[in-house]
Design a protein around this nucleic acid. Structure first.
Lengths: 251, 251
DNA sequence: GCCCCGTTAATGTCAGACCTTTAAATGTCT
DNA sequence: AGACATTTAAAGGTCTGACATTAACGGGGC
């Protein structure tokens, strides 16, 4: 592991990259302990602060975890599903919110992905998944629910659908797609009428899953997609022009 | 934005979280300049090094970018698609490689997601996408190709399929699923016979896309999935037992 | 045998200094 | 006046050395 002191890049970034490469390539494996900060500073011939900044970068990506005290240090971290979920959601949310991604594009992607779960979920969903969905549907019918709470419940319902596929990798991938839509959905105001329509579509979805009918599940999702996009179009048409400034990173 | 100096968490982590929240919530928007390191140190009542560690954490997630010199500083970064792709791929790859995710689970997720693209890709793929796929198929038929190059070409082909859907959000989500499989695929040794079978399935896939036949595209993907899993099973059966150590993060 | 306590090796934090980069402001020449 | 060179100040990047805080280990006292 070597760095180039003449490179224009920050030393701490170079060091972080070197260590990250070692982890990704398998030179360092889960549970391995990195040398102490002082030793790393020696090895790379930089100060301890520089090493620390590098380690903080890696910690931010959950690649390492640090432990204080004697026999502490930095350890290669096992990336857990919850951590991966969280990163996935943050990245997806920011990507959508910062790039003026149109509602249509995001919505299309989300429902396409959800439909991918439909056959698996229809086959494998447990009674628990179904119960969660029914509970959320019931909540969505309550009067006096704020738009935000309605959206949150919507997310919970769709996550239950996704989790029904019983494939953690799929759940992980979908978490970003579903959750990242929430801020966009939150811009919509839901009338009583549109809530009723959505609840009815959700019920169709739950019924299809209960009957383990993959095709009907997919159809219900498609109809839900269609309805959501129509609803959004009527709301967004107005304020869609002004966007995209031009500060961005220089050449 | 405040931090709790009595919390057990590192100050730099708390500060990073505070700033991250401000970005995610929209209090800080793209192009905004953060206060200088010295000012932040003042505000949070910590030293400059602590602030710097916090900023490096954010930089590692591409949330901010720093610029040296007068009128430089830390700016809220627009998360670009390439950056998001890269993070997505790193996270997915590590998640798979560190959690003893079974080939079957990963493979199932990947093909389920790809099938989600099938209808869109069949409808929208350009001649370019098709040409890329044909070129990769041709490469895959070349004798003397290493297993690794074969896998890389496989990834390129599948990315073309995904990109054919012309939905950048979908491409972004799928990038992780497709690329993260590569290390797992690399463990497989491909015989001439199995390469021929895969090339033939790839050809069917390309033909289906050329004919804009969504159903046949999905069927070809399903057959490819079935074949891939069979192939993997024969290879992995042996060395699947020993895995999962128990160092991990303490309670 | 068990509990308490010091030792020690780590990370976490701080303070201050200096280097490097960058762009704006100023000055100078044509 | 305009083009070019120079100065300057603000900001991040790095280094040094110190101290604080943790936590596992080992030893002593009961």
């Amino acid at each position: 592991m070597k760095i180039d002191p003449n490179s224009s890049a920050d030393l701490s970034a170079q060091i972080a990259t070197a260590i990250r490469d070692a982890i990704v390539s398998g030179d360092l494996i889960v549970c391995d302990r990195l040398p102490s900060e002082a030793e790393l500073a020696d090895q790379f011939d930089v100060s301890r602060s520089t090493v620390r900044e590098a380690l903080k970068r890696l910690a931010a990506q959950s690649l390492i975890r640090t432990q204080r005290g004697a026999f502490g240090g930095a350890f290669v971290n096992r990336l857990s599903y919850p951590e991966a979920y969280a990163q996935q959601i943050t990245t997806s949310t920011l990507l959508l919110s910062m790039n003026a991604v149109s509602f249509d594009v995001a919505c299309e992607a989300r429902f396409a992905l959800e439909r991918a779960c439909a056959p698996l979920s229809a086959e494998r969903r447990t009674a628990d998944h179904l119960a969660t969905m029914r509970a959320e549907i019931h909540r969505q019918g309550q009067p006096g629910l704020t738009d935000e709470a309605f959206c949150a419940s919507d997310v919970a319902l769709h996550r239950a659908l996704v989790d029904g596929a019983q494939n953690p990798v799929l759940s992980y991938q979908l978490a970003g797609a579903v959750e990242a839509m929430q801020p966009l959905m939150n811009m919509i105001t839901f009338t009583t009428r549109s809530r009723e329509a959505i609840v009815s579509l959700h019920t169709r979805l739950a019924d299809a899953l209960e009957a383990r009918d993959a095709d009907e599940t997919a159809r219900a999702l498609s109809d839900l997609e269609r309805y959501t996009r129509e609803l959004a179009r009527s709301v967004f048409d107005a304020r869609d022009a002004a966007r995209n400034s031009a500060c961005d990173t220089p050449a």
